[in-house]
């Protein structure tokens, strides 16, 4: 389940996704955006999230695509007029800018698919707990209640059918009212029980002093190394960007894309940043595959068809 990049310390994942988000918003150079997008797709595929990606894709394409269409319709700045639509000039700059923003949005959407897989709520809360312990506690408690309440709601739905409260029957008005009655039963019951939860918290010393945090995550040397590497390779493009490299100026007049030595350094460093996690995932996959092939060829024979009784005796 949890291996490769996903098994690493939460700080690593958070740094990576925060960095990607930052780059997506800052660096509008199409090469960088496309690289980031490709890196993310590679990571998603290596993480086995291809299905998730496909499921969300129509919505993402619609959202991002609409940006590409809307921008030239409403923004008429730019020097290169392509044609007129309803007496409004459609400029090359606006079209390009719309396309760039489409890439940005797509990157952000894909980024969150991978984020949802890698940085589980547990990890997010771990990172969060240091800054806002009470909020984190509150959120964790709410997270604990959700599956409990879902189960209770199912039970309530089943039983209340006996007294005619049924969301599957009757007019829409009655059904919605019944749905709310079910929620009310859940509310009353859960609030009543919540008081016991409160007691149990108090009995275990909640509120007598500042809480410490127990962590199941340990930072090992690999975490530290990757953290350092991500930090360095992320910092270089950021600094260069502040120096004005890698900028792609469209408005008010499109400037040609420049790709000098500065951009080259920036791009290499950026690639390193983007590709470290896919690399880690890939290494893991390769490791398992090769270990299955080489290390224990005799221990786990694949059962095929008829099984010979004599093999354990040999």
């Amino acid at each position: 389940m949890s291996s490769g990049f996903r098994a690493m310390h939460p700080a690593v994942g958070l740094l990576y996704y925060a960095g990607l988000l930052l780059f997506a918003a800052l660096i509008t150079h199409p090469l960088f955006l496309i690289t980031e997008l490709a890196g993310l797709i590679l990571l998603l595929l290596l993480q086995g999230q291809g299905r998730q990606l496909l499921r969300g894709l129509p919505f993402y394409l619609l959202m991002a695509g609409s940006v590409a269409v809307l921008n030239p319709l409403f923004s008429h700045r730019g020097a290169h007029i392509l044609f007129y639509l309803w007496d409004q000039p459609i400029t090359l700059e606006a079209v390009l800018y719309g396309l760039i923003m489409m890439l940005v949005l797509l990157t952000i959407f894909l980024l969150f698919i991978s984020y949802n897989y890698t940085v589980t709520t547990d990890k997010f809360m771990y990172a969060f707990a240091a800054a806002a312990p009470k909020t984190a506690l509150l959120t964790l408690m709410a997270i604990r209640f959700v599956p409990l309440f879902q189960r209770r709601l199912r039970e309530i739905t089943l039983i209340q059918r006996f007294r005619g409260i049924d969301v599957g029957e009757g007019s829409l008005r009655k059904r919605m009212r019944d749905g709310m009655t079910l929620l009310k039963v859940l509310l009353t019951w859960s609030l009543e029980e919540a008081l016991q939860t409160g007691d149990s918290m108090k009995a275990r010393g909640y509120g007598i002093r500042r809480r410490s945090t127990y962590s199941i995550y340990k930072m090992d040397w690999l975490d530290k190394a990757v953290l350092l590497l991500l930090g360095l390779s992320g910092l270089i493009p950021l600094i260069l960007w502040l120096q004005g490299y890698g900028a792609f100026e469209i408005y008010p007049r499109m400037k040609p894309l420049v790709f000098g030595s500065g951009e080259a350094v920036m791009y290499i460093s950026f690639c390193l940043f983007v590709l470290i996690p896919p690399g880690l995932e890939g290494k893991e996959i390769w490791l398992w595959r090769s270990s299955r092939r080489k290390a224990y060829p005799s221990v786990t024979p694949e059962p095929n068809g008829t099984r010979s009784m004599s093999s354990p005796l040999r």
Binding site: M141, E193, T197
Partner: peptide, 15 residues
């Protein structure tokens, strides 16, 4: 206490 469900505060066992 009596009710096993109501005493639990956190979402996972280790927590």
């Amino acid at each position: 206490f009596q009710n096993p469900e109501a005493q639990i505060v956190m979402d996972t066992v280790w927590h």
